[in-house]
Write a protein that binds this DNA or RNA. Structure first.
Length: 493
RNA sequence: GCCCCCAUCGUCUAGUGGCCCAGGACGAGGCCCUCUCAAGGCCUAAACCGGGAUUCGAAUUCCCGUGGGGGCACCA
């Protein structure tokens, strides 16, 4: 039984955009660390120079920040086990790789990639598994060192035992037995002097005292190799957990780049940057992704803090999950309804100003209660509330005509409503609604017809927040002017 | 081709041998409320992949199929 402090990590490679898969791979270890009073670390795995994307690291960090996933150690903020960028740890890996060579667990290999390609093709032709043929495996250590000293290009490979088997444990799946003969002499250190994942991640997890490794299931097949490496060093293994992949919405196949592009066409995205622009909230996104791979019996609406309180690694699920954007919408809308007026006002303001609207904060605060339960995404505020910040509205003339009536009749109704409103001392909804309802009664019309005309006249649109509350915020003068304008439009038809 | 993993309503999942003729949520349908759109309330349909085995008893354990996913690089 270990009494070591819990330390978990998120170890992405800066090779692309921050997406929901990354986010969830960061979320679970974060929750585990917070739940158990441990430490959460960010480590950048940038050992592949060919795939390095400038700016990717920043996008990763921005994404974590947006979601509220704070790391305790990592690039930029440091920590006792740094540096936290693998390219800044070259010597450490170099030293460890050679340690394995010295102990007989690894060997330098001088094979060219040309030769390796040829071997591989040959093997494929003979329907054999493509793997390293062991050419440099039995070179004497003295000869190998001599060739390295002479400046020959080399890699360091793990010397996989030819016989026996290894048993590894995945916390979510139990133990997995693998024949060593099925494993390859994998490269641990590349000829450019940088380590591969197999070496770098194992060394770092050990040196950084990581207790729980939560990572994608694409690593499951190399878990036996990783266990071999760890044991060759004489270390203890951390607890390993492999998260399943996200499947595309149809459930057929995993979420791919191509599929991500499709989603964008439908107004959805799996990239955090895009989701923010589309009006999704960190709360909604978090709630959505946390439940894809983690089961709760009920009460599935949670904030980050509530997730921390309830999280347990034993309720993580090993099966693949199809992403469902409708569910995202649901969680987003649900969290929006939970926000305070001030909070929501601050969150939707940028979407108005982004459209060039001049936002009056007093008005903004007043309309939030009207918009709150109508928003699925934050940018829906535009459709429901832009007219509050415009001087004029330009209703579609056709929309001003009430259902079942003609333009002339509609103009008459508008005129009567105008007079009723004009007679009121103020335009509060408490004052205006009763007389207009009375008019609906005595005229034999229905509320839809009368209020519909007023809605289009005052807001310029057929769908809006509640009419009387909206008119109150728009103000007496503007309302009267807009109704007058509507009457003119109707009379000209 | 070889290796590995997974398998409960359309989707995310609860379920750890009797509490399950399987619970929740999204979505779908219906009703109520209603000035539009929402929100809210109530209700309905909807699943243990197939076959064996173990057991008094299996969604839950084991085996075999089938289906799905992942991996087999000097990428992570």
């Amino acid at each position: 039984m270990s009494i070591k402090p819990i330390r978990t990590r998120f170890a992405p490679s800066p090779t692309g955009r921050m997406h929901i898969g990354n986010a969830r791979s960061a979320l679970y270890p974060f929750l585990l660390a917070r739940r158990l009073g441990g430490t959460f670390i960010l480590r950048i795995e940038d050992t592949d120079q060919k795939r390095f994307v400038p700016g990717a690291e920043q996008e990763l960090i921005d994404g974590l920040h947006w979601l509220g996933i704070q790391f305790d150690e990592g690039p930029g903020i440091g920590g006792p086990y740094g540096p936290y960028r693998q390219t800044e740890r070259r010597e450490i890996y170099h030293e460890h790789a050679w340690k394995l060579v010295d102990s007989g667990h690894a060997f330098p290999c001088f094979c060219t990639s040309e030769r390796l390609d040829k071997v591989r093709q040959e093997q494929m032709k003979n329907k054999q598994n493509p793997r390293y043929d062991g050419y440099c495996r039995s070179l004497s250590i003295d000869e190998a060192r001599q060739r390295v000293a002479n400046g020959e290009k080399y890699v360091i490979r793990f010397k996989m035992p030819k016989e026996g088997s290894i048993t590894v444990t995945d916390h979510l799946r139990g133990s997995i037995v693998t024949e060593n003969a099925a494993l390859d002499d994998s490269v641990l250190m590349k000829s450019d002097g940088l380590p591969t994942y197999h070496l770098a991640a194992m060394v770092d997890d050990q040196l950084m005292q990581i207790t729980h490794v939560i990572r994608g299931s694409e690593w499951l097949p190399s878990l036996p190799l990783h266990a071999h490496v760890i044991r060759a060093f004489g270390w203890d293994e951390p607890v390993f957990m492999h998260l399943s992949v996200f499947l595309k919405p149809s459930g057929k196949g995993k979420m791919s780049k191509r599929e991500a592009a499709e989603a964008i066409k439908d107004g959805h995205s799996i990239f955090l940057n895009d989701m923010k622009d589309l009006g999704y909230t960190p709360e909604g996104v978090l709630n959505w992704i946390v439940l894809m791979g983690w089961g709760v019996a009920d009460d599935d609406v949670m904030t980050l803090n509530q997730m921390v309180e309830r999280f347990t690694i034993d309720s993580l699920t090993p099966s693949p999950a199809a992403i469902n954007f409708q569910k995202l919408d649901h969680f987003n809308a649900t969290h929006i309804r939970l926000f305070s007026t001030e909070d929501l006002a601050g969150r939707i303001k940028p979407y108005f100003t982004r459209e060039g609207l001049n936002v009056n904060d007093d008005v903004l605060l007043k309309i939030v209660p009207l918009l709150r339960e109508r928003l699925v995404t934050l940018d829906d505020c535009l459709g429901f509330g832009s007219f509050f910040f415009k001087d004029d509205v330009s209703p579609n003339p056709e929309d001003l005509i009430a259902k079942g009536l003609d333009a002339k009749q509609s103009a008459g109704i508008a005129q009567r409503a105008y007079e009723i409103l004009l007679a009121q001392s103020d335009i509060s909804h408490e004052r205006c609604e009763p007389p207009l309802r009375a008019y609906v009664e005595e005229s034999g019309l229905n509320a839809n017809q009368v209020f519909g005309i007023l809605r289009v006249a005052t807001t310029g649109q057929k769908v809006s927040p509640p009419l009387f509350e909206s008119m109150e915020i728009i103000g007496r003068e503007k309302c009267l002017a807009r109704i007058k304008q509507a009457i003119e439009i109707l009379e000209k038809m």
